[in-house]
Write a protein that binds this DNA or RNA. Structure first.
Lengths: 135, 135
DNA sequence: GTTGACTCTATAGTTACTATAGACTTTATA
DNA sequence: TATAAAGTCTATAGTAACTATAGAGTCAAC
Protein backbone atom coordinates (compact mmCIF):
# COMPACT_ATOMS: atom_id res chain seq x y z
CA UNK A 1 0.00 0.00 0.00
CA UNK A 2 1.03 3.60 -0.49
CA UNK A 3 1.67 6.13 2.24
CA UNK A 4 -1.78 7.71 2.03
CA UNK A 5 -3.51 4.42 2.73
CA UNK A 6 -1.21 3.67 5.65
CA UNK A 7 -1.92 7.13 6.99
CA UNK A 8 -5.66 6.52 6.85
CA UNK A 9 -5.43 3.09 8.48
CA UNK A 10 -3.37 4.39 11.37
CA UNK A 11 -4.88 7.84 11.66
CA UNK A 12 -1.42 9.35 11.25
CA UNK A 13 -0.64 12.17 8.87
CA UNK A 14 1.45 11.42 5.81
CA UNK A 15 4.10 13.85 7.00
CA UNK A 16 4.29 12.16 10.37
CA UNK A 17 4.99 8.79 8.75
CA UNK A 18 7.77 10.29 6.67
CA UNK A 19 9.06 11.99 9.82
CA UNK A 20 9.19 8.68 11.71
CA UNK A 21 11.17 7.20 8.85
CA UNK A 22 13.63 10.07 8.94
CA UNK A 23 13.95 9.63 12.71
CA UNK A 24 14.61 5.90 12.22
CA UNK A 25 11.52 4.71 14.05
CA UNK A 26 10.19 3.14 10.87
CA UNK A 27 12.36 1.19 8.45
CA UNK A 28 12.75 2.74 5.02
CA UNK A 29 10.22 0.88 2.91
CA UNK A 30 10.65 -0.33 -0.65
CA UNK A 31 9.84 2.07 -3.44
CA UNK A 32 7.70 1.73 -6.55
CA UNK A 33 9.03 2.48 -10.02
CA UNK A 34 7.79 6.02 -9.63
CA UNK A 35 9.62 6.31 -6.28
CA UNK A 36 6.52 6.02 -4.09
CA UNK A 37 6.90 4.34 -0.70
CA UNK A 38 5.34 0.87 -0.57
CA UNK A 39 4.22 -0.51 2.78
CA UNK A 40 3.06 -3.95 3.91
CA UNK A 41 1.28 -5.40 6.92
CA UNK A 42 4.48 -5.39 8.93
CA UNK A 43 4.92 -1.67 8.44
CA UNK A 44 1.35 -1.25 9.58
CA UNK A 45 2.05 -3.17 12.79
CA UNK A 46 5.20 -1.21 13.41
CA UNK A 47 3.44 2.11 13.02
CA UNK A 48 0.57 1.07 15.25
CA UNK A 49 3.07 0.04 17.90
CA UNK A 50 4.61 3.49 17.70
CA UNK A 51 1.19 5.13 17.90
CA UNK A 52 0.28 3.03 20.91
CA UNK A 53 3.45 4.13 22.64
CA UNK A 54 2.77 7.76 21.75
CA UNK A 55 -0.68 7.64 23.33
CA UNK A 56 1.22 6.66 26.48
CA UNK A 57 3.29 9.80 25.98
CA UNK A 58 6.50 7.87 25.55
CA UNK A 59 9.05 10.04 23.77
CA UNK A 60 10.35 9.08 20.36
CA UNK A 61 13.68 8.36 21.96
CA UNK A 62 12.07 5.99 24.44
CA UNK A 63 10.18 4.28 21.65
CA UNK A 64 13.40 3.91 19.71
CA UNK A 65 14.89 2.14 22.74
CA UNK A 66 11.89 -0.18 22.98
CA UNK A 67 12.17 -1.05 19.31
CA UNK A 68 15.84 -1.85 19.75
CA UNK A 69 15.07 -4.04 22.74
CA UNK A 70 12.42 -5.84 20.74
CA UNK A 71 15.04 -6.91 18.27
CA UNK A 72 17.16 -8.59 20.95
CA UNK A 73 14.54 -10.93 22.43
CA UNK A 74 16.87 -12.88 24.68
CA UNK A 75 18.32 -10.13 26.86
CA UNK A 76 16.94 -9.17 30.26
CA UNK A 77 13.74 -7.16 30.26
CA UNK A 78 14.08 -5.14 33.44
CA UNK A 79 15.26 -2.15 31.42
CA UNK A 80 11.81 -2.02 29.86
CA UNK A 81 10.19 -1.91 33.25
CA UNK A 82 12.65 0.69 34.48
CA UNK A 83 11.73 2.96 31.62
CA UNK A 84 8.01 2.59 32.21
CA UNK A 85 8.39 3.14 35.94
CA UNK A 86 10.45 6.26 35.52
CA UNK A 87 7.84 7.45 33.07
CA UNK A 88 5.13 6.86 35.66
CA UNK A 89 7.06 8.93 38.16
CA UNK A 90 7.34 11.79 35.69
CA UNK A 91 3.61 11.66 35.07
CA UNK A 92 2.88 11.68 38.80
CA UNK A 93 5.20 14.60 39.32
CA UNK A 94 3.49 16.55 36.57
CA UNK A 95 0.05 15.81 38.02
CA UNK A 96 1.20 17.19 41.36
CA UNK A 97 2.49 20.34 39.72
CA UNK A 98 -0.71 20.85 37.78
CA UNK A 99 -2.86 20.39 40.87
CA UNK A 100 -0.95 23.04 42.73
CA UNK A 101 -1.17 25.25 39.67
CA UNK A 102 -4.91 24.77 39.56
CA UNK A 103 -5.27 25.86 43.16
CA UNK A 104 -3.34 29.04 42.55
CA UNK A 105 -5.34 29.83 39.44
CA UNK A 106 -8.62 29.23 41.23
CA UNK A 107 -7.53 31.52 44.01
CA UNK A 108 -6.62 34.19 41.48
CA UNK A 109 -9.90 33.76 39.66
CA UNK A 110 -11.85 34.30 42.88
CA UNK A 111 -10.23 37.66 43.43
CA UNK A 112 -11.83 39.06 40.26
CA UNK A 113 -15.22 40.66 40.70
CA UNK A 114 -15.56 40.46 36.95
CA UNK A 115 -17.42 43.71 36.54
CA UNK A 116 -14.90 46.37 37.36
CA UNK A 117 -12.09 47.97 35.47
CA UNK A 118 -8.60 46.68 34.88
CA UNK A 119 -7.44 49.06 37.56
CA UNK A 120 -9.66 47.36 40.14
CA UNK A 121 -9.02 43.84 38.89
CA UNK A 122 -8.09 41.55 41.74
CA UNK A 123 -6.19 39.20 39.47
CA UNK A 124 -3.78 41.79 38.21
CA UNK A 125 -3.49 43.30 41.68
CA UNK A 126 -2.66 39.91 43.08
CA UNK A 127 -0.11 39.17 40.39
CA UNK A 128 1.49 42.54 40.94
CA UNK A 129 1.51 42.40 44.73
CA UNK A 130 3.09 38.96 44.68
CA UNK A 131 5.83 40.58 42.68
CA UNK A 132 6.16 43.49 45.11
CA UNK A 133 6.51 41.10 48.02
CA UNK A 134 9.55 39.52 46.46
CA UNK A 135 11.34 42.76 45.68
CA UNK B 1 22.12 47.45 36.95
CA UNK B 2 23.45 45.26 34.16
CA UNK B 3 21.79 42.18 32.78
CA UNK B 4 23.79 39.75 34.88
CA UNK B 5 22.63 41.32 38.12
CA UNK B 6 19.01 41.36 36.99
CA UNK B 7 19.38 37.71 36.05
CA UNK B 8 20.64 36.84 39.53
CA UNK B 9 17.92 38.83 41.28
CA UNK B 10 15.15 37.17 39.30
CA UNK B 11 16.68 33.75 38.89
CA UNK B 12 16.31 34.08 35.14
CA UNK B 13 19.08 33.31 32.69
CA UNK B 14 20.68 36.18 30.84
CA UNK B 15 19.57 34.70 27.54
CA UNK B 16 15.98 34.47 28.72
CA UNK B 17 15.93 38.16 29.58
CA UNK B 18 17.24 39.05 26.15
CA UNK B 19 14.67 36.68 24.68
CA UNK B 20 11.82 38.41 26.51
CA UNK B 21 13.02 41.71 25.15
CA UNK B 22 13.06 40.35 21.61
CA UNK B 23 9.55 39.00 22.14
CA UNK B 24 8.42 42.40 23.40
CA UNK B 25 7.52 41.27 26.89
CA UNK B 26 10.19 43.54 28.32
CA UNK B 27 10.76 47.08 27.10
CA UNK B 28 14.14 47.68 25.46
CA UNK B 29 16.19 49.21 28.25
CA UNK B 30 18.65 52.05 27.95
CA UNK B 31 22.20 51.24 27.00
CA UNK B 32 25.51 52.23 28.50
CA UNK B 33 28.24 53.86 26.43
CA UNK B 34 29.66 50.45 25.79
CA UNK B 35 26.23 49.21 24.61
CA UNK B 36 25.42 47.23 27.75
CA UNK B 37 21.76 47.00 28.78
CA UNK B 38 20.98 49.07 31.87
CA UNK B 39 18.01 48.10 34.04
CA UNK B 40 16.23 49.81 36.91
CA UNK B 41 13.75 48.80 39.59
CA UNK B 42 10.86 49.06 37.18
CA UNK B 43 12.48 46.50 34.84
CA UNK B 44 12.94 44.27 37.85
CA UNK B 45 9.23 44.48 38.71
CA UNK B 46 8.26 43.83 35.14
CA UNK B 47 10.43 40.75 34.90
CA UNK B 48 9.17 39.39 38.21
CA UNK B 49 5.61 39.85 37.00
CA UNK B 50 6.47 37.82 33.92
CA UNK B 51 8.12 35.16 36.04
CA UNK B 52 5.11 34.98 38.32
CA UNK B 53 2.86 34.46 35.31
CA UNK B 54 5.19 31.81 33.93
CA UNK B 55 5.04 29.83 37.16
CA UNK B 56 1.28 29.78 36.52
CA UNK B 57 2.10 28.34 33.10
CA UNK B 58 0.60 31.28 31.27
CA UNK B 59 1.98 31.43 27.74
CA UNK B 60 4.10 34.35 26.62
CA UNK B 61 1.26 35.40 24.38
CA UNK B 62 -1.15 35.44 27.32
CA UNK B 63 1.32 37.42 29.38
CA UNK B 64 1.70 39.89 26.53
CA UNK B 65 -2.08 40.36 26.62
CA UNK B 66 -2.04 40.92 30.37
CA UNK B 67 0.70 43.50 30.02
CA UNK B 68 -1.30 45.31 27.37
CA UNK B 69 -4.39 45.26 29.58
CA UNK B 70 -2.35 46.65 32.45
CA UNK B 71 -1.58 49.69 30.38
CA UNK B 72 -5.24 50.51 29.84
CA UNK B 73 -6.40 50.61 33.47
CA UNK B 74 -9.87 51.93 32.79
CA UNK B 75 -11.29 49.25 30.49
CA UNK B 76 -13.37 46.31 31.72
CA UNK B 77 -11.50 43.52 33.40
CA UNK B 78 -13.62 40.49 32.55
CA UNK B 79 -11.23 39.59 29.74
CA UNK B 80 -8.59 38.94 32.39
CA UNK B 81 -10.87 36.57 34.21
CA UNK B 82 -11.89 34.86 31.00
CA UNK B 83 -8.29 34.13 30.21
CA UNK B 84 -7.56 32.73 33.65
CA UNK B 85 -10.71 30.60 33.63
CA UNK B 86 -9.97 29.13 30.23
CA UNK B 87 -6.49 28.42 31.48
CA UNK B 88 -7.92 26.59 34.48
CA UNK B 89 -10.01 24.45 32.18
CA UNK B 90 -6.96 23.52 30.14
CA UNK B 91 -5.11 22.54 33.29
CA UNK B 92 -8.03 20.41 34.48
CA UNK B 93 -8.25 18.71 31.12
CA UNK B 94 -4.55 17.91 31.20
CA UNK B 95 -4.80 16.49 34.71
CA UNK B 96 -7.56 14.16 33.55
CA UNK B 97 -5.46 12.99 30.63
CA UNK B 98 -2.45 12.38 32.81
CA UNK B 99 -4.47 10.40 35.35
CA UNK B 100 -5.78 8.09 32.67
CA UNK B 101 -2.26 7.80 31.31
CA UNK B 102 -0.96 6.86 34.72
CA UNK B 103 -3.51 4.07 35.04
CA UNK B 104 -2.50 2.59 31.73
CA UNK B 105 1.16 2.79 32.58
CA UNK B 106 0.62 1.17 35.98
CA UNK B 107 -1.29 -1.63 34.33
CA UNK B 108 1.54 -2.14 31.87
CA UNK B 109 4.12 -2.07 34.61
CA UNK B 110 2.31 -4.82 36.51
CA UNK B 111 2.53 -7.14 33.54
CA UNK B 112 6.32 -7.22 33.75
CA UNK B 113 7.78 -9.95 35.94
CA UNK B 114 11.04 -8.03 35.80
CA UNK B 115 13.27 -11.06 35.77
CA UNK B 116 12.65 -12.63 32.40
CA UNK B 117 13.88 -11.93 28.91
CA UNK B 118 12.63 -9.35 26.47
CA UNK B 119 10.84 -12.15 24.69
CA UNK B 120 8.80 -12.88 27.80
CA UNK B 121 8.29 -9.26 28.80
CA UNK B 122 4.65 -8.58 29.53
CA UNK B 123 5.02 -4.92 28.72
CA UNK B 124 6.20 -5.43 25.19
CA UNK B 125 3.71 -8.25 24.71
CA UNK B 126 0.93 -5.99 25.87
CA UNK B 127 2.02 -3.13 23.66
CA UNK B 128 2.23 -5.49 20.71
CA UNK B 129 -1.05 -7.28 21.32
CA UNK B 130 -2.89 -3.98 21.64
CA UNK B 131 -1.57 -3.29 18.18
CA UNK B 132 -2.64 -6.67 16.85
CA UNK B 133 -6.15 -6.11 18.12
CA UNK B 134 -6.51 -3.02 16.02
CA UNK B 135 -5.24 -4.60 12.79
C1' DG C 1 48.90 46.02 29.86
C1' DT C 2 46.89 42.08 30.29
C1' DT C 3 43.95 38.69 32.41
C1' DG C 4 39.33 37.38 33.46
C1' DA C 5 34.61 38.21 33.87
C1' DC C 6 30.99 40.11 31.66
C1' DT C 7 28.35 41.59 27.70
C1' DC C 8 27.09 42.02 22.75
C1' DT C 9 24.77 39.97 18.28
C1' DA C 10 23.59 36.31 15.43
C1' DT C 11 22.72 31.69 14.73
C1' DA C 12 21.52 26.86 15.60
C1' DG C 13 19.52 23.34 18.49
C1' DT C 14 15.71 21.30 21.36
C1' DT C 15 10.63 18.07 20.63
C1' DA C 16 7.37 16.18 17.70
C1' DC C 17 5.40 17.44 14.58
C1' DT C 18 2.78 20.66 10.80
C1' DA C 19 2.75 23.41 6.69
C1' DT C 20 4.43 24.95 2.49
C1' DA C 21 6.61 25.15 -2.35
C1' DG C 22 7.62 23.21 -6.51
C1' DA C 23 8.13 19.12 -9.08
C1' DC C 24 6.80 14.49 -10.37
C1' DT C 25 3.49 10.23 -10.83
C1' DT C 26 -0.71 8.13 -11.15
C1' DT C 27 -5.67 7.87 -11.68
C1' DA C 28 -10.07 9.53 -13.36
C1' DT C 29 -12.66 11.95 -16.49
C1' DA C 30 -13.96 14.22 -21.19
C1' DT D 1 -6.02 10.17 -26.00
C1' DA D 2 -5.53 14.42 -23.66
C1' DT D 3 -5.93 16.61 -19.61
C1' DA D 4 -7.30 17.57 -15.03
C1' DA D 5 -7.24 16.14 -10.32
C1' DA D 6 -5.34 13.67 -6.65
C1' DG D 7 -1.57 11.73 -4.65
C1' DT D 8 3.34 11.57 -3.85
C1' DC D 9 8.23 13.25 -3.73
C1' DT D 10 12.11 16.24 -1.40
C1' DA D 11 13.56 20.12 0.98
C1' DT D 12 12.75 23.79 3.90
C1' DA D 13 10.62 26.69 7.47
C1' DG D 14 7.58 27.28 11.30
C1' DT D 15 5.72 26.09 16.10
C1' DA D 16 6.90 27.34 21.96
C1' DA D 17 10.00 28.85 25.08
C1' DC D 18 13.81 28.78 25.72
C1' DT D 19 19.22 27.01 25.77
C1' DA D 20 23.77 26.86 23.84
C1' DT D 21 27.38 28.39 21.04
C1' DA D 22 30.77 31.37 18.34
C1' DG D 23 33.24 35.28 17.82
C1' DA D 24 33.78 39.90 19.05
C1' DG D 25 33.73 43.78 22.14
C1' DT D 26 33.80 46.10 27.13
C1' DC D 27 35.24 46.78 31.66
C1' DA D 28 37.51 46.28 36.29
C1' DA D 29 41.37 44.72 38.84
C1' DC D 30 46.05 43.59 39.45
Amino acid sequence: MKIGELAKLTDCSVQTIRYYEKEQLMKSPERSEGNFRLYNKSSLKQLMFIKQCRTLDLTLSEIRQLLELQSSPSIQCNSVNKMIDSHIQQVEQRIKELNSLKEQLNYLSNTCSNNGTIEQCGILQKLTSDVAKNV
